[in-house]
């Protein structure tokens, strides 16, 4: 059978180009990494009916259904509809599958729905972010993690969001058992000390992980009603200059993070290398060309950072420059 397939359109429709001629893989988007059991069953059905009976769990919490004959793409798209409806992913035309693949699945650790250390509902915020930035063809990676343990590896993303809580201390409920001090030292950064039987928190050192709250047996330590975040930016893997994302904002609020991510798309449109392969370029390389201040100008357009928010005036990244040297020292 002669196949005449627009591969560019296929990839934009969230189907992967396979090395097996005539086959493709459907990429199921799972914002925040949570899918309901019914949709999971639908993925299984598609894999059994159209694919080769296997499902690949992607690094970014999505799923890929390989072994699908290219001519079955329209049928698979129709079958994906119920999954798309369930996951609340934005769509352009019903029955036609995913409208884009450039902006990658938004990752989330289990967060406060499950994890005792999670400082916020990562799933809900990942879904909110997905709604705000998808569909979009720009290559943008965003990940949410509940606390500074960074189980979601957000430092490998363009935007890495880490939950923070501002510990609230009631000295009248403190018996001076020092469990917060000890656990902060053992599990976190050692920001607490004892002065005259009560606890003093080094506000500069505190990373807002909430370990003190977790281990306080009396509720002398509680969480702030406000959820705060640390925003790390421009982490990436890759061939030229892989590097970890670095801190830009801390004690920042949820709305600002969403707006900053949205603003960044206009910045990319303005400055992306027109010759970038596949129209994709890690944002960090664009920032390297334009200078950090230009990125900040675009990213913070219309953003009102809260009174508690601290902002790095300049961010520096490390990472090896393989495009300059492949030496092992």
């Amino acid at each position: 059978m002669t196949l005449d397939v627009n591969v560019k359109a296929l990839m934009k429709n969230a189907f992967r180009q396979s090395k097996v001629r005539g086959e493709t893989a459907s990429r199921v988007r799972v914002p925040g990494g949570v899918i309901n059991a019914q949709s999971m069953a639908r993925v299984v059905e598609i894999a059994e009916e159209f694919g080769n009976g296997t499902i690949f769990l992607t690094n970014r919490q999505g799923m890929e259904i390989p072994g699908i004959p290219l001519e079955k793409v329209p049928e698979v798209n129709e079958r994906l509809q119920a999954i798309i409806d369930d996951s609340g992913v934005n769509q352009e035309e019903r029955g036609k599958g995913y409208p884009a693949a450039g902006t990658r699945n938004v990752v989330g650790c289990p967060g406060s729905r499950l994890c005792p250390f999670g400082c916020y509902d990562t799933t809900a915020l990942a879904r909110r972010m997905d709604k705000a930035v998808f569909p979009n063809n720009r290559h943008v990676k965003i990940a949410f993690t509940g606390c500074s343990n960074d189980c979601a590896h957000v430092a490998l993303n363009d935007f890495g969001i880490i939950g923070m809580t501002e510990p609230q201390y009631d000295p009248a409920r403190c018996i001076g058992c020092e469990q917060c001090v000890n656990w902060c030292k053992r599990r976190s950064v050692g920001a607490l000390s004892v002065v005259n039987g009560k606890i003093v928190r080094d506000e500069d050192l505190c990373i807002g992980c909430g370990v003190c709250v977790n281990y306080c047996p009396t509720r002398a330590w509680t969480r702030s009603p406000e959820h705060y975040f640390r925003l790390k930016i421009m982490g990436r893997t890759g061939k030229q200059n892989p590097r970890l994302a670095e801190d830009w904002l801390k004690w920042v609020d949820e709305d600002s993070i969403i707006k900053i991510a949205q603003n960044t798309y206009a910045y990319i449109d303005e400055y992306i290398d027109p010759g970038a392969p596949g129209g994709k370029e890690h944002i960090g390389y664009i920032v390297d060309r334009t200078g950090f201040d230009e990125f900040v100008k675009w990213a913070l357009d219309g953003v009102e950072l809260g009174p508690k928010c601290e902002r790095a005036s300049r961010v520096y990244w490390g990472g090896k420059r393989y495009d300059r040297s492949n030496e092992l020292f």
């Binding site: 406060s112 005792p116 509902d121 509940g146 909430g210 977790n214 306080c216 509720r219 509680t222 009603p225």
Partner: peptide
């Protein structure tokens, strides 16, 4: 009921 003052995020405590 102390809303949000529980041990974990968005949990309550009765004291």
């Amino acid at each position: 009921l102390k809303v949000g003052e529980g041990r974990f995020t968005d949990t309550d405590v009765v004291r």
